[in-house]
Amino acid sequence: MGAVRERAPALVSGNSTRLLLLFALLPLGAFFTVLWFGPMFYTLVMSFFTDPLGSAQFTGFGNYLDVLTGDTFPFYLWNSVLFAVSTTVLSLVVGLGFSLVVNEQLRGRQGLRTLMIVPYLLPTVVVVFLWTLMLDQNLGLLNQALVEMGIISSPIAFFSTPGLAMPSVITASVWKWGSFAFFIILANLQAIPDAYYERAQVQGASPWQQFRDITFPNLRGAILLILLVRGIWMFNKFDIIWLTTRGGPINLTTTLPIRVYDLAIRSGAFGSATALSGIMFAILAVTGVLYFTVMEPEAEVKD
């Protein structure tokens, strides 16, 4: 870092350098202005008008009040939080458990690692195909197994049964995104020096004690990162929920992103849709501030 800072003056002098700087940062500025600031500003402006694309009328916070005081908002927010928290925590449990296994001297661990990449890389649409077949009412493997074992008497339509739709979407999501936690934790596990464990063994620590006193403390940062970042991404998830349930049955899997889509694209209610977008923006901004305060990811930037 020191080296870069010392040499920086030599780098920024001269006309050709200034030109290069301009050339390098202009596309970045253009990109963010056109594809991020512009659209977000536009959204926020629209959220203050009724019927913003037709006979637009300024309504102040009217749309926000409508959205926030409607009967359904707390319910959709709850669905979002439920989906985000369950998928994230379950992914963490699966990822942690399995990375501990793969980190051991196990036969075939290289193969297991490669296997874990596959679900993460498969397009969400493929994951949806697989799980609608696995959980299908007529042909699904799970129904067949449950009926044969006598646990249920007749097959269940998992994705359209209240009470089972959300767990089904969560299962498919963990299947796909569990690997994210797995790879991050694995990388962190491999960074723990073997000497720690050797010393603990000499002192007679049991496997559980080793996990509690060595492994877990060294993973705290990774776990926090997964909870926060994966949690935000799952909160924002649209595709897997939309493709499996369309937000149903009776809106039981309607999360805020699904609701935004419904309002904007299906109902053309851009006033409410943009106000809800504004609310999501606020929620994400608060989480973002939390992320920056706790993790300080930008500390990796050298001046």
């Binding site: 920024v12 694209i265 943009t274 994400l284 973002g288 992320y291």
Partner: peptide
Amino acid sequence: RFSFRGKTTTARLILFSYMFSPIVLAIP
């Protein structure tokens, strides 16, 4: 490679947009 003011802010903006909701961006 270049030093300029507002680098930390730039980093935060990039990371924040990385965490942002695709659907909220898609509507505008």
